[in-house]
Design a protein around this nucleic acid. Sequence first.
DNA 1: CTGAAAGCGCTTACAG
DNA 2: CTGAAAGCGCTTACAG
Lengths: 343, 343
Amino acid sequence: MANPTITELAKLAGVSIATVSRCVNSPEKVGKKTLARVRKIIEETNFSPNALAQNFRRGKTNIILVIIHDVGNPLFSAILEGVRLALAGRYSIILTEAGPHGPTGETVLGMLVARQVEGVILLCAPLPFSRKIVEMSRARRLPIVIGLEPLSDDLSGLPNVHIDNFRAAHEATSYLISLGHKNIVFVSGPKNSLVTRDREAGFLSAMRDGGLEVDKASVRYSDLSVNGGLNAANEIFAGLFTGSALPTAIFCANDDMALGVLSSAARHHIPVPGQLSLMGFDDTCYAAVSTPALSTVSQPARDIGIRAAERLLQAIEMQGDHGPANEILPHRLVVRQSTRAIP
Amino acid sequence: MANPTITELAKLAGVSIATVSRCVNSPEKVGKKTLARVRKIIEETNFSPNALAQNFRRGKTNIILVIIHDVGNPLFSAILEGVRLALAGRYSIILTEAGPHGPTGETVLGMLVARQVEGVILLCAPLPFSRKIVEMSRARRLPIVIGLEPLSDDLSGLPNVHIDNFRAAHEATSYLISLGHKNIVFVSGPKNSLVTRDREAGFLSAMRDGGLEVDKASVRYSDLSVNGGLNAANEIFAGLFTGSALPTAIFCANDDMALGVLSSAARHHIPVPGQLSLMGFDDTCYAAVSTPALSTVSQPARDIGIRAAERLLQAIEMQGDHGPANEILPHRLVVRQSTRAIP
DNA sequence: CTGAAAGCGCTTACAG
DNA sequence: CTGAAAGCGCTTACAG
């Protein structure tokens, strides 16, 4: 018998289906002898309850959806570890990508609508998509926690957990300025990314606070990928041939792009940090081992994962989250070998 | 009305629930006027069918499970892109990690047992776990395709898609030997990883074929992470202080470890490739942008994803996969700047 | 083209 | 402690 049902088990054990169900779900309510008999049969038949029926009957799945930007990004590794820790096995995690290669919003929205998940953790989804997710979860009263990135103004009030990206970028920029850099370029991410927007604003604000000029060329948009950083740098370094002044420092909105910039600098024989200081953001595992090792801003990724999951559990189980909408975790400036004072 | 059911819709539209169901699932069977009326009400009430009930009723979920080793690994990005392409929206993907931080096997096994997914793509799960998954999927007649790694002997006969890791590692090693290297160390992955086992065997075989000596020190085990590679290299380079001969080439079982080795070499002032040649494996996006750029072996990750998904679809829909159990895709030696001939 | 009805496998008050 | 029964929301032969 391939996949026995409780009806079949009941027949075999000579009890009612209610009793079989109790043996599985609340054995303390069943007599010892009955329990033993039923359990023996469960063993023998290799029975496991049909979760589709259970989900349907109970109206819940014990699954939460974690939406990440892209699977290849090392940042999400630590976050997920945190989420898993906080969930402590009580809920399963389903991952979905929302980035460039991700499914169309439809697939994910479908899962939400279909009540197949009981909560959502949204990490760095690009803008039109994230707004749709949030609206949908609202309409369905599906608990949601935003991690890593702030909310756009029209979606404030939702629980979220992240660092102060504006302040972190401001600090990193101020640090570069304190080293004597005046011509600094910020390589930003796509305009529909909220994290990036805050980091860019922090950069611009620090430049102004430092009394430095900012123009169109001060910010360059790319896509947060290694190759994106490489291409952006190639364009910047094209100035070598036209004779225009190169920046003395480049600050990238994430480490991946900074690694791309580093590679481009090497190809153009621009020594880092000798002739160019370089900063990244995120402090992924690759930042520490590049040559030179990358100065960057560290996010407490694991803690962000833990707090996001804890707050989601609270929202699911207590019916509503009562912490502050914005929970800000501390960031940390990590100075390594890719930045240096102007002589 | 929050989440109307077809019963409520039927009442509103003055039709039977069967008709409502048909309007949703097979509108061609419904009269034009009826259809229009019901659709209008579906619009107004913002109805969407309860997928829990649908899944239960239909006995299927249209979801496939993709088990990857760890989320942070850039290799999986391209594979998933391929899987998604091949699935063409007909199935949704659920991702789970099986690596060090992953859930205990129980969670994943639970999902399989519970009939919540209709097929599995297994990518690089460590050994006791992967065997359990495979056994379970067999017992449940759940289609499964293995990607990226070979099967252990006791599990042969299952469809799988991967490169010839033995031959690829043999080629890479032979390339190093052809450059004049004699003292070559292989930094391997955990012993419970099948991919790694093949690569290691390929290395050893090439060494013997090249007439080179191999001893205990020729292979060093690590964990496929950047830090693992760094630590392994630190131990190797400790020979600097004891006066024992350092290898002139290091071949790592993946790029991440090679990047760790590169960093350690820099810290020990060992020029790469001047004094040490270095090879990785996988050709992730980080391999191309390290300094020096990493020589490595490229896997057609996207194609592996595509073929794995295509074969899974076949198995799900045609009841059984009839291609060859082993499908070998081509690899490619990528020579960059981290390897050089011994003068 | 439409409706009445059975049934998917389970859980859970309710009664005993 | 146990059983009979209702019902979760849907799909689908069957009959008309």
